[in-house]
Amino acid sequence: MSARRIFTAPARLAAIPPYVWMVLFFLVPFGFVLKISLSQTAIAQPPYLPVFGLSEGIDGLKASFAALSLDNFRLLVSDNLYLASYLRSVLVAVVSTLILLAVGYPIAYGMARLPRRWQGIAMMLVIVPFWTSFLIRIYAWINILQHDGLLNKVLLALHVVSKPVVWLSTDSAMYLGIVYSYLPFMILPLYATLAKQDPSLIEAAADLGVSRIDAFWLVTVPLSLRGVGAGALLCFIPIMGEFVTPDLLAGSNSLMIGQTLWLEFFTNKDWPVASATAIVLLGLLLIPLLVYDRLQRRQLEAR
């Protein structure tokens, strides 16, 4: 027996507890979401039909399967409310990701240019806010953005505006909150690729007669596209499913899909529709993941 093998055997045993846990509390619940998304709403507890029960045996199970329907998915397509929510989620995620990129890139670039010993400190400074609760971070902005908040006071004092501006419950506030919450997720992957870049590449570009600004666009940016992709993905996907930030900062006239799901679940008690919403959302999120995977593979093959 090889030593590698005797080493991997206990390592494989170690897989059992987390494996069982994840199957039980991740995979199986997923099956429930799928199943309930195909069930019918009922005014009961739990509020859906049919409920799988093993007490009725195989026939009961068959009957349950027969009762499954795609009605909830049909509703999602036919009702503008859901379509609008999905579209709004995509729009918000795209716009936020673009803003994050525009804000995060200069910061990450600045970090990568710092002397080595400062880079670690700068990275800590970017990570630390991520450790504080996102609810607190959103709340901090509510403090600043409210009607008689600090922002309006400053603007009034500077005579930029003549009367307080309504910030809260607007899309601007929501974008601000989202950018604030997700900035570290954008900065860190960007910084990781930028810091790895060999500074002599820029020297080589300068040596070849390229101006500093052109060198940035011709050398630095193309070489950092990996980080851009990772950062964009890391921000885009969770923003799609955001609930708290739009709920607290944006107005209530148009909802993101996370809010709609929450509403269906907690307010309308329509669990089957909420489940169907979740399934479709997951499907949507697979698209950027697959695109990213495809791009990465192409990059690997090109090598």
Binding site: F32, P238, F243
Partner: peptide, 16 residues
């Protein structure tokens, strides 16, 4: 779960 929206994780666990 690292990238999955929390609403989905929460919903699925509740259903379980």
């Amino acid at each position: 779960p690292l990238v999955m929206p929390e609403v989905i994780t929460g919903l699925s666990l509740l259903l379980l």
